[in-house]
Design a protein around this nucleic acid. Structure first.
Length: 258
DNA sequence: ATGTCTACACACTGTAGA
């Protein structure tokens, strides 16, 4: 079972790339982020025509997450994280597909920091932590997949160079500690586990020819609870779609569970 | 400081968010 995450950066503008990727990579489950569209304008027909069932949580202009399942309808378990009824951002959607539980998340960027946006990021991470603690011990495989907006370390595996990013919210110690604490609950970082020190970037800024120079960051992650990690066979980045016309600034990442 | 892209609105140019 192939489970993927892909920050599409606008599903309307990116629909041709999304459909190509679904056809060529053929994930069984796809978690999408940054739909940047309201619920009413989600392109369900095109996605169904590609052979996928879908649930989504949209928001006009910003944010938005979806779970797609090939030849199946995802069964929704949760819409939004618990812990703040005043939070209006569409950033978390949880579903069951087959025997696997998938949490699709779009973690707040947090820039500029310090400031209210960074505070919101850290509070959101705390809420994610508390909810993840209720999932980690389930007998079912659990995959928390999405754009975490955290570069885990300064290692070449995670960033081409930390210079120039020292003040960015994605590299702050508080962001990294929260990400590490999440893993300490009992979640495995699939891509890091299978690829060691190799550079495994998932995001490249549009400007300054960052893609052409492979000046990327690893910020899209799939965290696996123990039952899921026991079935982990492969994890890869689908770089091919990032090199095409009008791409997202992210590449999809996926795991294969046996 | 710069740079690029998407979506939105007092909309064909400017602004926010990333």
């Amino acid at each position: 079972m192939k489970i993927a995450t892909f920050n599409v950066n606008g599903i309307t503008a990116r629909l041709p790339r999304l459909l190509e990727w679904l056809a060529e990579s053929a994930p069984d489950v796809a978690c999408l982020q940054e739909l940047k569209t309201s619920d009413e304008t989600f392109p369900l027909q095109a996605i169904e025509a590609a052979g996928y069932g879908a649930i989504w949580h949209g928001q006009k202009g910003f944010n938005g997450v979806a779970v797609l399942a090939r030849g199946a309808q995802p069964v929704e378990r949760r819409r939004g994280l618990p812990g703040d009824p005043d939070d209006t951002h569409s950033r978390y959607l949880e579903a069951q597909v087959g025997d696997v539980i998938v949490g699709a998340l779009y973690l707040p960027n947090g820039n500029p920091q310090p400031g209210p946006k960074f505070d919101y990021k850290l509070k959101w991470m705390q809420r994610l932590h508390e909810h993840a603690a209720t999932l980690v011990g389930l007998d079912a495989p659990v995959v928390l997949a999405g754009d975490y907006n955290v570069v885990p370390t300064d290692a070449v595996r995670d960033i081409y160079s930390p210079k120039g990013w020292q003040n960015d919210a994605l590299l702050q110690p508080e962001s990294r500690e929260a990400f590490a604490r999440l893993q300490a609950l009992g979640f495995t970082d699939a891509l890091a586990t299978l690829h060691g020190d190799a550079a495994m970037y998932t995001y490249w800024d549009y400007f300054r020819q960052r893609w052409e120079r492979n000046a990327g960051l690893r910020i899209d992650h799939l965290l696996l609870n123990a039952p899921a990690a026991a079935r982990l066979k492969a994890a890869e980045v689908d770089r091919f779609i990032r090199g095409r016309e009008k791409p997202s600034d992210h590449a999809p990442v996926w795991v294969e569970l046996g």
